[in-house]
Computed example of a mutant assay.
Amino acid sequence: MTGGGIGAGTLWLALALLLGLAELLIPGVFLVFLAIAAALTGAATLVLADLPLAGQLASFALWSGVTVLIGRRWYRDYPIETADPLLNDRAARLIGEIVTVEQAIDGGHGRVKVADGVWPARGPDCPAGTRVRVHQVDRGVLVVEPLAIFTAP
């Protein structure tokens, strides 16, 4: 990509194709924006045959920024629907779970056992071994509440 002309433009378009294929193989919704930027730079290099390498790199950087900003805006305005919106939010998935107090909750603070891990917890005082329900998650701390005891009328 040293200089302008059809050779450099073709290399940019090949790079765009490779980035597009990489996005298909390793989906991350990011390489596609770089592929678009490379394609636009390739088109500009074909049209402006004597565009120097610095101009090509500046074009790629500019178009990369523009396409990433457009993509971020697009995904913010049109989020992807999923069957499991909490898939990558482990803490939020814990809400409603019943856990066991590992270190007594004393003065409102303690630790609870969740599966094979232990999390900091906040809630009413409870001795170790008490089963509690996760009510919410506040900055990595599980806010717990005692299990309701149901009695028949």
Rank of each mutant, 00 (worst) to 15 (best):
A14D: 06
R122D: 06
G65I: 10
G4Y: 04
D84I: 12
V114C: 07
G55N: 07
L147K: 10
A35P: 03
E81V: 09
G96P: 08
A22V: 04
V68F: 13
S59L: 14
L86W: 10
L11K: 00
L21M: 05
I36R: 08
G123N: 06
G108S: 13
V32K: 07
K113D: 00
T82F: 02
A38M: 00
V29D: 03
V101Y: 10
G9F: 06
G108Q: 02
D125V: 11
I105P: 04
A43S: 10
R111W: 11
L15N: 08
A91I: 02
D89H: 05
H109W: 13
I6T: 14
D89E: 13
Y78F: 05
E97H: 15
Y78R: 15
L15I: 09
V141G: 07
G117R: 14
D116V: 05
D50H: 08
A37C: 10
V141H: 00
A83M: 11
A121E: 00
T45V: 06
N88K: 06
G71A: 12
V137Y: 13
N88G: 03
L19K: 11
I149L: 11
I6P: 15
I6A: 09
D116W: 01
L11I: 14
L86G: 14
H109D: 11
D50A: 08
T130F: 08
P127T: 10
G96M: 02
Q136E: 15
H135E: 14
A54M: 13
D89G: 06
L69G: 13
F30E: 10
V144M: 01
G28A: 14
